[in-house]
């Protein structure tokens, strides 16, 4: 990324809480254009809450969130709709519409937002399914007939349906075997490079962080406690970050061994 960094998402001093219990306490974070950011944090640390707050699904108490240079809370309905067209979201469980076939699921956002002919819509939808690694034969299947990996792929195809600029991924590899998870990581990386996406990824998966993310942000105690490439994470002295990146599982996955490589990139 030689170009000047242009934030597509800019979160400042965000406070979100349920009842009296704050989950995010004055959090600030940027996602730059064309980069892939991995957000890590313990279970219940508020990763998904942060993502859902950015998407406008959870109200915030304080702070500001700008998406593509617009504060969604203050924006008019039409501006907000035009922004909502420019992002795609992959939900943790896929959230495919259970009564529509895969093809119809991918076509759905196009049908709602674009004036395209049926033929083009069908061709583009098939192309998207193929890009995420599903065959045209799968296009007539219902979501209930899919395996976990296929559901993630199909949901990814739907998230990409409108050619979004920002892609939100909520644990894209959770519940997948390491091989499928690796495939998904490679796929996300390829799509990100091909389509020039900015990716905001919530994940637990150390391999995903390493293979699909340019930058990592660690969330603990309602704050971003460390931010930077994975190599920088390894140098952080924050107890949670230390335990996460230099703990038993991390060493088992030999992340530590990749320090020099990560330093070079």
């Amino acid at each position: 990324m030689g170009e000047a960094l242009e934030p597509v998402i800019r979160v400042r001093d965000l406070v979100v809480g349920f009842g009296a219990r704050p989950v995010l306490k004055g959090l600030s974070l940027d996602l730059n254009r064309g980069e892939s950011l991995g957000l890590v944090g313990g279970s219940g640390s508020g990763k998904t809450v942060l993502m859902r707050t950015i998407l406008g699904l959870i109200p915030k108490k304080k702070g500001s969130i700008e998406v593509l240079g617009t504060d969604l809370e203050r924006a008019s309905d039409s501006v907000r709709h035009s922004i909502e067209r420019r992002w795609g979201i992959l939900y943790q469980q896929g959230a495919l519409f259970s009564s529509l076939t895969l093809l119809q699921n991918v076509q759905f956002p196009m049908r709602e937002h674009l004036a395209v002919s049926e033929r083009t819509m069908a061709e583009i939808a098939l192309a998207k399914l193929e890009m995420v690694g599903l065959s045209p034969d799968d296009s007539g299947k219902l979501p209930s007939e899919l395996s976990g990996g296929m559901t993630k792929r199909a949901a990814l195809a739907r998230a990409l349906a409108l050619d979004p600029e920002i892609l939100f991924l909520d644990e894209p590899t959770s519940g997948l075997d390491p091989i499928s998870a690796g495939d998904i990581d490679t796929l996300i990386r390829t799509l990100q490079k091909t389509l020039g996406l900015s990716v905001f990824m919530v994940t637990h998966d150390l391999d995903s962080l390493q293979s699909a993310c340019d930058r990592v942000a660690a969330l603990a105690d309602g704050q971003i406690v460390a931010e930077g490439p994975i190599a920088a994470m390894l140098l952080s002295e924050h107890p949670w970050v230390k335990a996460y990146f230099r703990g038993k599982r991390a060493t088992a996955q030999s992340i530590a061994a990749s320090v020099p490589k990560a330093m070079v990139t």
């Binding site: 069908a122 098939l126 193929e130 890009m131 045209p136 007539g140 490079k193 091909t194 020039g196």
Partner: peptide, 19 residues
């Protein structure tokens, strides 16, 4: 150059005729 990847990708898809 920046569109080459995308065009190549599109060159691959929809080769099979769908059922």
């Amino acid at each position: 150059e920046r569109y080459r990847g995308l065009l190549d990708e599109m060159g691959q898809v929809n080769r099979q005729t769908p059922p």
